[in-house]
Design a protein around this nucleic acid. Structure first.
Lengths: 204, 204
DNA sequence: TCTTGGTTTGACCAACTGGTCAAATCAACG
DNA sequence: CGTTGATTTGACCAGTTGGTCAAACCAAGA
């Protein structure tokens, strides 16, 4: 029987995860230190390890929590909806996530860049299963002529890369664009891009 | 008067840069150790430091070399060529780089993810200058009706993200696709994508 | 108030880190 | 061959790292 967590536990655990997210998303797992996380969380290092038994435990807890959030927008893609609206809805949900949760996006990017040592199983398991399932939906839409011919898997990769780019490469985007906020232009651009890519052309 | 480098110097320096590329591209600057690089290069750690005075020097040398390679494909974009061929040529050059130099791509991604501490100046300097210049070319093509209306900067971001994704997120792409080689499909997909996005539509 | 269990910390440790240095080794030229 | 300068290395160092532990502190219910 595990006890209900106290208020202090809740506060400190969320403070630790938030601090871990901040640090890990910037430096990756190996490049981050417990001291950095402890300071960002406003706790001493031994106190940190009172709530999570190891550096790895903090990182794993973060990734675990992230994976749910990460799959959700794709799960919402509805076969019974209007194809182009559904796909554009997915694009905008993903772009909103890049805007609202850039650290989560960079944490994920860091993990993948390093070869996904902690989540390789999830990628070839849950993620692959979900993607294959939605790829079938896309293929049926395509065969019904409701979207232009396209490789479903690469379409999904395109959505991922185009949206996450604005979080992961934020520094570069801002350096090139100057002061103006990238996200307004990004939203309009991606909307246009996917509309043109997906709208079926009349038969000759 | 600096002496000409000996054969041994050339061999070891390239071995070090190659090892550094391998290690840094996976773990980032902070997450990599001199011991890792030394082992990958087949040298002892003090011998490493005989050729490069510090960890930072190896990393900087790599980034410096990379930046030239990185800008080149965009520089080749020729205002006097056929717009869609020129843009598609750029896309394919970038995709080829993701296929042939994935470690370079991941090194760059790592540096940007960490906030570009070593190359922030280059981004808002040379890179921005080149991008602005080519954005003007794209805008003139657009105003001449030779490509469909588009935001030039975001078009360039799209090319970067879509092509580099196949190097940076290689593990994820392969986990989702299974064994089949991603690059063949990627090339066809991106070709199609940019053609549809850029081909001007007839006026109504 | 006292007790009890959750919470916090200073001191500490072994392993690892980037880097140094003097001495040993090697290559090549005269 | 001997010499000279380039190359390599073992031993070492101070600072950092993830993690431990006993002792101190604190909140809240009896």
């Amino acid at each position: 029987m595990s006890k209900a967590p106290t208020r202090i536990q809740q506060r400190n655990r969320t403070a630790i995860l938030d601090a871990g997210l901040k640090v890990f998303s910037q430096y990756g797992f190996r490049g981050s230190t417990l001291d950095q996380i402890a300071e960002a969380a406003g706790l001493s290092k031994p106190n940190l390890l009172y709530y999570y038994p190891s550096k790895d435990a903090i990182y794993t807890a973060l990734l675990e929590r992230l994976l749910e959030t990460w799959l959700e927008p794709l799960q919402q893609l509805d076969e019974d909806g209007d194809p182009i609206s559904e796909i554009l809805g997915y694009v905008h949900r993903k772009l909103d996530m890049s805007r609202d949760y850039p650290r989560e996006s960079r944490l994920f990017a860091n993990e993948i860049l390093q070869g996904a040592p902690h989540i390789a199983g999830h990628l070839s398991g849950e993620l692959r299963q979900l993607v294959d399932q939605k790829a079938h939906v896309l293929r049926r839409w395509e065969q019904a002529g409701r979207i232009a011919p396209i490789d479903p898997h690469h379409l999904i990769f395109s959505i991922w890369s185009l949206t996450q780019h604005y979080a992961d490469f934020d520094v570069q985007v801002r350096a090139v664009l100057g002061d103006s906020d990238p996200m307004a232009g990004a939203s309009a651009h991606l909307d246009m891009l996917f509309r043109r890519m997906l709208t079926p052309q009349a038969e000759p």
